[in-house]
Design a protein around this nucleic acid. Structure first.
Lengths: 107, 107
DNA sequence: TCAATTATTAAACGATTATTAAAACGTCGT
DNA sequence: ACGACGTTTTAATAATCGTTTAATAATTGA
C-alpha cells in the first residue's frame, strides 16, 4: 500500500488542469511516451510552463522520463496510478462489495 | 464522463492530508456515514477546521451530508469517486489492456 | 426560556502555487 | 567549434490555500 504523503503528492499533482491534461494524454499514449515538445504543442503550453509541470508530475512519481537525443520522452507510471486508486478505495464500504454496486475496472 | 473542471476540483479536495483521511474514513464506512464530531474526534481535528474541510469535500461532490437532530452525518459519494477514477484511466494505453497488466478493481 | 451541545462562519496570517519572460544547459549536424 | 534546436532553470509577480481564534446558528432537554 502507498504512503499517505505520496498519495497526497500524486493527487496534488493531478489537481491542476494543465497537468491533468498532460497526464491523461500520457495514460492514453502508453509506455512509449511522448516528447515534451509534442505535448507542449498539443496542449498549447509554453515550454517553460511545461517543464514546471513535468517536474511536479515526476516528483509525484506519476510520470517518468528518458532522454533520446535532444528529446525528452515522458510516460505515465501505471504502478503509481493504480496504487493511488487502490489507496482511495481501500476497504470500501467495510469490504462489502454489494453496497457500492460499481463496475470493475480494466487498467 | 465527468467534466474536467469537476475532476480537478475533486482531486484538489483529496490532495490534502486531513481531507484524504476524512474521505478514506467515509469510504470505508459506507453510505450510512459518520457524524462530523465523530470524525473530528477520530482524526484529532478541530471542529472549525473540520467544517472547512467538509465544505471543500462537499463542494467537490465527494461527500454528502444529512442532518439528524443536532448531528450532521457525512457520507462518501461513490458515483463521483468512480467517475474520477474512470476519467483518469480513460482510454488507457490506447485501449490495449495487456499493456498496463494491472488487476481489475472492485468498488 | 435557559443552558448545553453540535456545527458553521468570518477575519487574519503565513505558506504554497501557477505563470511569464529571460537566461542557461545539453545535443545534434555541419 | 559553431549555430540551431529542445528543454530546463531562475527570478518575479499575483493568486490560492490551511490553520487559528472568536463569534454565530441550530437543536435538544430541563
Amino acid at each position: 500500500m502507498m504512503e499517505p504523503t505520496q498519495v497526497v503528492k500524486a493527487l496534488a499533482a493531478l489537481a491542476q488542469p494543465t497537468r491533468l491534461a498532460i497526464y491523461r494524454l500520457l495514460v492514453a499514449t502508453g509506455p512509449e511516451g511522448l516528447a515534451a515538445g509534442q505535448i507542449a504543442e498539443t496542449l498549447k503550453v509554453s515550454p517553460a510552463n511545461m517543464s514546471f509541470h513535468f517536474k511536479t508530475l515526476s516528483h509525484a512519481g506519476l510520470v517518468e522520463s528518458r532522454q533520446d537525443g535532444r528529446f525528452v520522452y515522458y510516460a505515465a507510471n501505471f504502478t503509481v496510478m493504480n496504487g493511488m486508486v487502490d489507496y482511495l478505495t481501500e476497504n470500501c464500504c467495510g469490504g462489502n462489495d454489494a453496497v457500492c454496486k460499481t463496475p470493475t475496472r480494466k487498467c
